[in-house]
Every structure is written in structure tokens, then in C-alpha cells.
Simulated scan of single mutants.
Amino acid sequence: MSEDVTGRGGGAAGADVIVVGGGVSGLTTAMVLAERGHRVRVWSAAPSSATTSAVAGALWWPYRIEPQDWVGDWSLASLRWYEELAARPRETGVRLVDGMHRGERLAALGPWAGQLDGVVETAEGLRCRLPLIDMPVHLEWLERRVRAAGGSVERRTIASFDEAAAEARTVVNCTGLGARELVPDSGVRPVRGQLVLVENPGIEEWFTEADPASSETTYFFPQPGRLVLGGTAGADDWDTVPDPRTAREIVARCARIRPEIARARVIGHRVGLRPARDAGVRIEAEPLPGGGRLVHNYGHGGAGVTVALGCAEAAAHLVG
């Protein structure tokens, strides 16, 4: 049973590509394919507002993602696109915002870092002006782009990719954590992220401090109408219920950087499960019974937004 939520009568019929997954990877891939002339349907078990992508703090930065040989190109392709979208922030949800990556050093990053404009290395870390994406707005904008190109977005839960293959010759797998069971791929695992939303006490710049060896991170991102505080990186933790003690610790860590955060009114709590994969991102095609093709685009870890367009273009290349 599916529900066409495109707002267009009959828009779901006659697709040659079905993209399974309605988060940022799925919608960006569907947009690229639809704008290249494919008839595309997106099948998503949940509305975009209920996906992991909607929870993301969404600062552009390659974080917790492999393989390094490809991540740089994917990230830079997405960066240039976001820089263009930032000219229309209310429409696209993308803004360019200044901030600090405390503890980062250019020499410790990949070759991609040499392509960044305006990065200043200080004794404290890296000062940068980077895309910061308001994900609920951006996801809605992506859906509109898909529809404008003739695609559709439907609520549909599947137990097998065969269900999609029965209705389209090409299926694109953008299911994130769902790939663990659907592929199946036991190397897919969650990295739990908990966030606290507070009223912004006047902070205009973002801040991050992350130790890859620790499950605790410290960051805050000024989004429209809220300040997003984080965070955690709990590997193999499937718990989607916010933990009150963890929330207090997040606020305390952020307040050590900006004391006014301690007095900010809490307006919400969020938990998202980053879809990590032991072997890194998988962008690969394989045949389906009956002569169809299954194209994989999953395993983006903590950088699904950062590589969204780059990976979408790579997957679209495999679709043909």
C-alpha cells in the first residue's frame, strides 16, 4: 500500500527509477536523476521530517565517513552546490556561517582541505565560513525540486528491493540504516547522536570540538529560531529516546565555551542514528533478477549532508 504525497494526481505512475529512502541522500539522488530526464519515484517509510536527516545539525564537514580516497571529491562537489544555494537561504535552508573547528589542523586533513576558501589556522584551531543547513527547510525544498522535475514522493515501506524492482527497471538504495536488513549488510551500524535545542541567546557563529576517539563531542549551531547543541557519537547504540543526563552534560559542555548557553531555555530534544558502515560508503551497482539493476548509495555515517550531491551524482552515473 502506498500513498502519493506529491500533491499531483497520477504522479506516481510509470517510473523507470525508484529511489528507496526519503532522507537527504534519497531526495538529492532523486532530484539529480529527475533533472536528468528519468521518471523517478521516491519510496520512503517516513516523511522527510521524521528521517535522521531532519535531526542533523548539518554543518558541511567530512565527519565520520570513509573511504578517504573518495570523500574529498564528493564533499567538494556538495560544497560548491551549497555555496550557490546559500544565495537563497529562506528557500533552500542553506546559509554560509562563520565558526571555529577547535583543535583541527589543516595538515591532519585530507587533500580536499586545500580546496577550501578563506580558512584561517589559529593556535586554537580552524576558522572557516561554511554551509550550515536548516534541514527541515532543505528537505522540503528537495522534495519540491523532485516534483518540479516530474518525480513523486510516496510513503511506502518495503520488505525487499524486489517490490521496487517489480515496478521499475532500476532501483536506487538510499535506505541508510535500513540497508542493514534490506541488502542485507551486517556492516551497517548506528552511531547515536543526541541534541538539545535551546532559544538562541545571541550566538551567531558555530563551534565544534570533536575527539574521534570519544563518544562525546561539543558543538553548537545557530539555526533559524533555535540554537542546536551537541552532542554524542555512540557506536552501536540504537536508543532513540533522549537521555536527560546526557542532555544536561551537552548543555554544560557547550556552556563552558559560551557561558550564556547555561541560561538558555530548552525548547526540545532530538536523537538521530547516523548510518555508518564498516567498509565506508557504498556506491555500487548489481544486477536484479529479471534484468534490472540495483544501485547502492548508503553508509554515509556522520556526513550524509556533506556528501549528498557528490554521492548522488556518483549513483546517477551508475544508473546511466
Results as ranks from 00 to 15, higher is better:
G14P: 13
A15T: 11
V19T: 04
V20A: 02
G22F: 00
G22T: 04
G22E: 01
G23W: 03
G26C: 12
L27D: 05
L27T: 11
L27V: 10
T29A: 05
T29V: 08
M31K: 15
A34Y: 04
R36M: 06
G37N: 02
G37R: 02
R39H: 05
R41C: 10
A45I: 07
A46I: 04
P47E: 12
P47L: 04
S48A: 14
S49D: 13
A50K: 13
A50V: 07
T51Y: 12
T51Q: 13
T52N: 15
S53W: 15
A56V: 04
A58K: 00
L59K: 05
L59V: 13
R64G: 13
R64D: 15
I65P: 03
E66W: 12
P67N: 03
D69V: 06
V71P: 12
V71N: 02
D73L: 10
W74D: 00
S75H: 05
A77Q: 14
A77R: 15
A77F: 08
R80L: 11
W81M: 13
W81F: 12
A87S: 12
R88Y: 10
P89Q: 02
R90E: 14
E91A: 13
E91W: 07
M100P: 07
H101F: 14
E104I: 05
R105T: 13
A108T: 10
P111M: 04
A113T: 12
Q115F: 11
V120H: 13
E121K: 07
T122S: 15
A123P: 10
A123R: 09
A123D: 15
E124R: 13
L126I: 06
P136G: 02
P136C: 01
P136T: 01
V137F: 01
E140S: 14
E143M: 03
R144V: 02
R145S: 00
